[in-house]
């Protein structure tokens, strides 16, 4: 009985120490940095992860694949969201409330705010002074797709463009861009 109590106390103090340590950890970051720490800690080398913002997913995927925020730096998202009335030639205006919610999500999850293995490589390929607006124009993207001939993408009516991630990356909706799960429609399994 006495021993049981001893273990109980030990366990409790262990939990307390751990939770205090977590508190101290999260307090280093300021405000929105909180989530960054948590995710950075848990998913150091993980995939880019699924879209976690409902407004972003609903509004943007009404017209196209909702690209992961971690594929562009924060400054790129800011520029894109400030020019929705001419969004790559389309009008994609939003009301102020929705626009701010989405901008905030994209900024806090951008490549330079929430690092993972993709966003780090992406950032390295972007000049410090550049503000890319298209993921498909970054050197990292081009490098990763360099072996794919145009006939499989732009010349392939089932794909059409390198912007349609989901056509070939079947797990893209869940933030998985693993090259082993790539299937190009109309062609047999893509092998590196």
């Amino acid at each position: 009985m006495k021993q049981k109590k001893y273990w109980g106390i030990l366990l409790l103090s262990g939990c307390l120490t751990l939770s205090m340590a977590t508190l101290a950890w999260t307090e280093d970051g300021e405000g929105e940095g909180h989530e960054r720490h948590e995710r950075g800690f848990l998913h150091q080398a993980a995939d880019i992860g699924p879209i976690t913002n409902k407004a972003y997913k609903t509004e943007c995927s009404a017209c196209h694949f909702a690209y992961p925020a971690g594929f562009l730096p924060e400054r790129s998202w800011v520029k894109i969201m400030n020019n929705l009335d001419d969004h790559f030639g389309e009008n994609a205006e939003l009301n102020d409330k929705t626009r701010l919610v989405i901008t905030d999500y994209l900024r806090t999850h951008a490549a330079d705010r929430l690092p993972n293995r993709f966003s780090r490589s992406m950032l390295r390929s972007v000049d410090a002074g550049a503000t890319p607006l298209r993921i498909s124009e970054t050197s990292y993207f081009r490098h990763k797709h360099r072996e794919i001939p145009a006939r499989m993408v732009t010349g392939n009516p089932k794909v059409g463009s390198f912007s349609n991630c989901l056509s070939c990356h079947s797990g893209a909706d869940n933030g998985s861009f693993d090259e082993h799960s790539v299937t190009i429609p109309g062609f047999r399994q893509w092998e590196d």
Partner: peptide, 14 residues
């Protein structure tokens, strides 16, 4: 209603 107005704005302008 909100969705109707959003698309009227975008699509009329475009």
């Amino acid at each position: 209603a909100e969705k109707i107005e959003k698309w009227f704005t975008r699509n009329c302008k475009w």
